[in-house]
């Protein structure tokens, strides 16, 4: 009866030794290779710091003008452009300008990195069922594993700072763009692909002239999701020393400052809504050709 009552688990000491062994091995790895890995990521850190400084050094009226211009280029909507100006004026007036710029810098760099890595990865996945079978479960893990868990090895390797924060954001935010690039390419009409083959398109020409353009709406949906998820990581990133709107939120949680938490939280929401609407509008404008469907 004893056998059914208690799970036949590994011996206590064995289990402790196992965990200790893994920890020791990783610590050893981190001691021997930590520097090399840090050097590897150094250019990234420099780029992030430079970009953040650039945003902060830009005079605020110019910054708002640039943001408004980008919103206009993306959405072609007066309403949205004015909305973005008012949002940033309010953010500045409520004393969150500096943190907002830091967050914008982090999100921009993270999104850029995700696209840079994610789209080629998605293309590879679409090309080969085997690669898809390998990458899909990895993406599943990246999306479901609690962020705190993968923060541990990142922290052990790189310590507290901006780069581990950036990596944490990317790990969490990259899956949508990879998945939707893959899906978008796989959903391209087979008849059109056959036509490209029949006219003698090489695999590369097929990718550029048919697959990517036709997958673009899905790729865009992926980029949009990636941006949203990156914004969702701002608070967690602030726990490992990334400056930005997450820092005051963290402080508010620790000290029960309701107003501070709400203000900074809502600033994140405002940026998220802005990014979302503009990128969606832009994605739709790219689909000009599907507007009028003939009956």
């Amino acid at each position: 009866m004893d056998f059914l009552g208690a799970f036949p688990q590994m011996g206590r000491t064995d289990l402790r030794d196992l965990k200790k062994g893994i920890d020791e091995a990783f610590r050893h790895f981190s001691r021997t290779h930590g520097q090399a890995i840090e050097d590897f990521f150094h250019p990234l850190l420099k780029f992030l710091v430079w970009f953040e400084k650039l945003l902060l050094a830009t005079p605020w009226p110019l910054m708002i003008a640039i943001i408004a211009a980008l919103v206009w280029l993306g959405s072609r909507s007066i309403k949205m452009t004015i909305g973005s100006i008012l949002t940033f004026l309010l953010i500045g007036y409520l004393g969150m300008w500096k943190d907002t710029m830091s967050t914008l810098a982090l999100i921009s760099v993270a999104t850029f990195l995700c696209i840079l890595i994610g789209i080629p990865l998605g293309i590879l996945m679409a090309r080969s069922d085997r690669i898809q079978a390998v990458i899909t479960p990895i993406l599943d893990i990246m999306q479901t594993i609690p962020s705190f868990v993968y923060l541990i090895p990142v922290l052990m390797l790189l310590g507290i700072g901006k780069v581990p924060g950036l990596i944490a954001v990317c790990v969490y935010a990259i899956p949508p763009v990879v998945r939707l690039t893959n899906l978008g390419i796989r959903l391209v009409d087979r008849d059109v692909l056959e036509a490209a083959d029949a006219f003698g398109a090489s695999p590369r020409q097929k990718l550029v002239s048919v697959q990517l353009p036709l997958a673009l709406p899905n790729i865009f949906a992926g980029i949009n999701q990636t941006i949203m998820m990156a914004l969702g990581m701002v608070v967690i990133a602030s726990m490992i020393g990334v400056p930005g709107l997450g820092v005051p939120v963290l402080k508010a949680v620790n000290n029960q400052y309701l107003a501070l938490g709400m203000m900074n939280g809502l600033a994140i929401v405002a940026i998220a809504i802005l990014f979302d609407r503009v990128s969606q509008k832009f994605g739709k404008r790219l689909q000009k050709h599907s507007e009028t469907i003939h009956g």
Binding site: D189, D191, V192, E194, A195, A198, S209, V210, P213, L214, L216, H289, S290
Partner: peptide
């Protein structure tokens, strides 16, 4: 082609 197979984005 029977179903035309034109490039919709062009």
């Amino acid at each position: 082609f029977q179903k035309f197979a034109l490039l919709p984005h062009r």
